[in-house]
Structures are given as structure tokens and as C-alpha cells.
């Protein structure tokens, strides 16, 4: 009998610590599948963030660093400059990347650092219990915006992909989602393209993933996937913002 579905080799056979309906596990799996398909497990290095996915190295079995909050792109830079032959990626939440780590991600992209970043935008600080993130939508209630985020008090949510796409060093920038099977397939394609961009030496690549975070959103998993589509996508449109020119 032909096996049609199995665990990627790049993943440990364990269950994750994520809440039911969390997007992190899906993205982990997609990254593992792509690593397998590209046959790069032995030369891939990941950098885990501070956030719910800090234990990423318990799930993916490539070599990994655990960064300080927001500093993953700097660590990835240090590694890549020592081992240019390795495929180096960072995995970061929105607090990690778009708030405390804004300088590091912008400059890694501006330098055209040959790394790939998978940026999980769930519009909230998951790990610390649901505080406002730089990506929290206007009107969205969090534990530190209990009456809903207002632009007067907290300004406007950051569109990271659009910002980074303006930088010459960024070769591939895309925003995807993992709220339904069709989007999951697209997300995987983008992740693959990001790795390929790096492997071709074309520059920095980033895939922003709109990801559901049901627990602090105070929603059921099915409400959460709907919220991604109805609330997040209008403000954070999906698509490729920058892509290397096709060869040939």
C-alpha cells in the first residue's frame, strides 16, 4: 500500500505544546515538509524566537539556536557569515519581529542577508497571555487594550511585508495564511520559494503568515480561522510583495 501522508523526517515524533487551533504547529510542519523536499535537513539551521514557539527545536530536528527576544536575525546573520553554505532561517512572532526586534529585521533585510524569515503574525502576544502587539488591529481587545486598540493611544498596526518589500536587499517577500487548506498549500509554496531564494544567493526572504491564536483571542478554533479571513486579511492582504525575476 502506498503511504500518502506521513510525518516529515525533519520533525520529531512528538506532540506540540500549542493550544488547540494554533497556527504555529501548521507552519512548523510546512517548514519541515519543505526542508524534506529540498533535501536540506543536514545543512539547515533554524533560530527560534522568544514567544510561544521558543521550543521550536523540540519539534524540528535541524541544528538550532534559541534567540533573545527580537534578536534572531542578528544571530542568523552571525551564523550565516561563518557558514555561508548553510541554509539559515529565523522563526519569529509579531512581538518578537515587529516590536522589540524591528531594527534587527529591517537591517538584515536591508543588508540582503542571505537568510529566510518566517514571521508569524497572530495580532497578539501569545506567550505572555494576550497583550497588545504592534500588529493588533484597531478595535481589537487584548489584555492591555481592554477597550479595543485605538489609533489615538496606540497608533496603527504595522504592515511588515509591505515595509520590507521596499528594501533593495529583500529578494522575496510574501504574506500567506494558514486558515484553510487552500491557503495552507499556498503558504507551503511561499516557504519553499523563500528557501530557494536563499539557496540561489539572491538575498533576504520573508514569509509573513497570518496565524490563528484562539486562546487569547477568546475564540474557538473555528471562530479563529474565520476571524483571520474577515478581520485580518482586509488589513493584511495576502500575496507576493516582491519576488525574484523568473530565470530564462
Amino acid at each position: 500500500m502506498k503511504k500518502v501522508f506521513e510525518r516529515p523526517k525533519s520533525m520529531y515524533p512528538v506532540s506540540t505544546h500549542y493550544c488547540p487551533g494554533c497556527g504555529h504547529g501548521i507552519v512548523h510542519r510546512l517548514i519541515a515538509e519543505v526542508i524534506d523536499e529540498l533535501g536540506i535537513l543536514e545543512k539547515t539551521v533554524g533560530v527560534a524566537p522568544v514567544g510561544c514557539s521558543v521550543l521550536l527545536y523540540n519539534y524540528l530536528n535541524c541544528d538550532m539556536y534559541e534567540a533573545a527576544h527580537g534578536r534572531a536575525p542578528a544571530i542568523a546573520t552571525g551564523c550565516k557569515r561563518v557558514h555561508p553554505e548553510l541554509v539559515v532561517f529565523t522563526y519569529q512572532g509579531d512581538g518578537d519581529l515587529a516590536s522589540i526586534g524591528t531594527a534587527e529585521i529591517i537591517h538584515a533585510a536591508a543588508r540582503g542577508e542571505k537568510i529566510s524569515t518566517f514571521f508569524i503574525n497572530n495580532a497578539i502576544y501569545g506567550m505572555t497571555g494576550g497583550q497588545m502587539a504592534p500588529t493588533t488591529l484597531i478595535g481589537q481587545k487584548t489584555t492591555t487594550s481592554p477597550f479595543g486598540r485605538t489609533s489615538e493611544e496606540a497608533g496603527y498596526p504595522l504592515r511588515v511585508s509591505e515595509i520590507l518589500a521596499t528594501l533593495d536587499g529583500a529578494a522575496y517577500v510574501a504574506r500567506v495564511a494558514v486558515n484553510d487548506p487552500k491557503n495552507v498549500i499556498r503558504a507551503k509554496k511561499a516557504i519553499k520559494k523563500a528557501f530557494e531564494t536563499q539557496m540561489k544567493g539572491l538575498g533576504f526572504s520573508l514569509v509573513e503568515v497570518l496565524s490563528q491564536c484562539p486562546t487569547p483571542w477568546k475564540m474557538s478554533p473555528s471562530e479563529a480561522v474565520k476571524w483571520v479571513e474577515e478581520k485580518m486579511m482586509p488589513y493584511y492582504p495576502l500575496g507576493e510583495f516582491k519576488s525574484p525575476k523568473e530565470e530564462g
Binding site: 534567540a67 542578528a74 542568523a76 546573520t77 552571525g78 557569515r81 561563518v82 534587527e104
Partner: peptide
Amino acid sequence: IASIYMVFGA
């Protein structure tokens, strides 16, 4: 800040 974490990575 970035310098010291690049050192960390290297």
C-alpha cells in the same frame, strides 16, 4: 545590540 547577537550567532 545587534553586534553582540551576531557574535552570539558566530
